[in-house]
């Protein structure tokens, strides 16, 4: 039987979501892309805050929602590109943003509302689905694509 590669988790508060992000963030390396998928208020930016912390972005650099600026850049142990496609309506606009430079760039890229660019995502990508279960509880599903991301999921499982 094929071993299940995805990982289903549940967090019970924003703090727990941040902690999970930190753990994943610590395992990311140059060129990794994390695609966050989930409704409004499901915790995408919260998880991204944890990922950035795990990547060594300092606490005084507030990782805020990039919905309006589209892209925010942070300095961790690697450059962190935090992209938000909330305001994007079609793929044409993503091309206009110069997405290739980020998806295949010199850092780690975190994409919110990544379902809007499924076709453009690189083959090696960590897809994370977020779902609202209750007021504070979130279901977090990790779907790794490619060996390196699968390795990360294995280590998170332990």
């Amino acid at each position: 039987m094929k071993r299940k590669r995805t990982l289903d988790l549940e967090t019970r508060s924003a703090e727990e979501t941040i902690d999970l992000g930190k753990r994943i963030g610590k395992l990311l390396r140059l060129g990794d892309v994390v695609a966050l998928i989930g409704k409004l208020g499901s915790g995408k930016t919260t998880l991204a805050q944890g990922l950035a912390r795990g990547l060594g972005v300092k606490k005084r650099d507030y990782v805020t929602s990039p919905s309006f600026t589209l892209i925010k850049e942070y300095k961790g142990k690697l450059p962190v590109y935090h992209i938000d496609l909330y305001r994007i309506d079609n793929l044409r606009e993503v091309y206009d943003l110069g997405y290739e430079e980020y998806f295949y760039g010199e850092g780690v890229t975190i994409i919110e509302w990544a379902e809007k660019v499924r076709k453009l995502l690189p083959q090696e990508v960590m897809i994370i689905n977020l779902e609202i279960i209750a007021e504070k509880r979130r279901r977090v599903e990790l779907i790794p694509k490619g060996k390196h991301c699968q390795e990360i999921v294995k280590r998170i499982k332990c």
Binding site: T45, T46, Q49, Y62, T64, S65, S67, F68
Partner: peptide
């Protein structure tokens, strides 16, 4: 400053 969303957002 805001730590997450901006009010207009």
């Amino acid at each position: 400053r805001t730590r997450d969303d901006a009010p207009g957002e």
